[in-house]
């Protein structure tokens, strides 16, 4: 059983959504060497650096099961951040460069926290895990690896991800693992914004023009085969659920279906009638896309072994 890092606080104490106006410049201006660019919540929000520090001091250490679970969630967030980052400077409007950049930053922040914690098991850092693992050692689900496609595909993917992550993080806030609960408490507020962003775009695109509607319908067809994998239970989630550390993925499905269903109904869309993909990312069996993502992401670490940046 782990302990909470000293700086971790529950969501109740941080009061509402982060104010981005005090985010980046605030962190920089504070002169705090451990300040993170991803810190969007003022006050004492849990930052990746706090977790890394707690782990290195031995104040937080995950069990083997929790570490594996944190790796899954961390990899999901990392791979998605890598995908979303591509939109910055390419979005349909400047406002979307900012919005997608924000979502990417949030996901990257979650990834850093989760990977820092997962690495606490055997002393590996977030960067060791991100840059020095091979494809089969990643634990992300196939959905997160899916190419950006056009804006509609990115929105469809984000819509599914944010409704899934919201249900997951919401439940994790009461995890018996207090570090996981702390990470989730920060993440759930951010993911709540992501839900709003993607739901609004689903409505705009589905009810906008004929072209946007066709693209939105197509995008959901492209993305929906990867939905089922998110909600599959396995031995690990069974043990974690038993221990009260994490919910069974299948237990999130009902809320996910209901809430996404409400938006889809308003958008006059139906859940696409497509066959689910078997997935396998949780066991290291990935789509063909991950290799390219990692090749790009890891190139400097591989080219300059042992260098620090």
């Amino acid at each position: 059983m782990s302990t909470t890092p000293e700086t971790a606080v529950s969501s109740g104490e941080t009061g509402g959504h982060g104010d981005i106006s005090v985010g980046v410049s605030g962190a920089g201006a504070s002169g705090d060497g451990t300040a993170s660019a991803t810190r969007i919540t003022p006050g004492n929000a849990l930052r990746p650096e706090d977790i890394a520090l707690a782990v290195s001091r031995g104040a937080a250490k995950p069990s083997e099961d929790v570490a594996e679970f944190a790796l899954r969630l961390g990899d999901d967030a990392l791979i998605l951040a890598q995908r979303l980052g591509h939109w910055i400077s390419r979005a349909p409007e400047l406002e979307e460069d900012v919005a997608l950049g924000n979502i990417a930053l949030d996901e990257l922040g979650h990834a850093r926290s989760l990977l820092s914690y997962a690495g606490g098991l055997d002393g590996r850092s977030e960067d060791d895990l991100a840059y020095l693992r091979r494809e089969h050692e990643f634990r992300s689900a196939a959905l997160f690896e899916q190419p950006n496609g056009d804006f509609a595909v990115t929105i469809a993917r984000q819509f599914v991800v944010s409704y899934y992550q919201f249900e997951l993080y919401r439940r994790l806030t009461s995890s018996t693992d207090s570090t996981l609960a702390g990470i989730a408490a920060k993440a759930v507020k951010e993911v709540d914004y992501h839900r709003d962003h993607s739901a609004q775009w689903v409505l705009r695109l589905a009810l906008g023009t004929d072209e946007s509607r066709q693209r939105m319908i197509h995008a959901f067809k492209v993305i929906w085969p990867y939905v089922d994998e998110l909600f599959r239970d396995d031995e690990l989630t069974g043990r974690l659920s038993e221990a009260g550390a994490a919910p069974q993925p299948s237990s999130l499905r009902e809320d996910f279906d209901r809430l996404t269903g409400e938006v889809l109904a308003e958008a006059e869309l139906e859940v696409p009638n497509v066959q689910p993909s078997p997935g396998g990312g949780r066991r290291g069996l990935h789509s063909e896309h991950l290799g390219y993502i990692l090749a790009e992401m890891q190139v400097l670490a591989r080219e300059y072994p042992g260098a620090s940046w």
Partner: peptide
């Protein structure tokens, strides 16, 4: 952004490029 050599650097770079979009706005 996609090749930033550490996750912290990646986060900072993303935030910076995002700031530039904000400045443009």
């Amino acid at each position: 952004i996609s090749r930033a050599p550490s996750l912290k650097r990646k986060a900072i770079l993303m935030a910076k490029v995002q700031d530039e979009a904000g400045h443009g706005l």
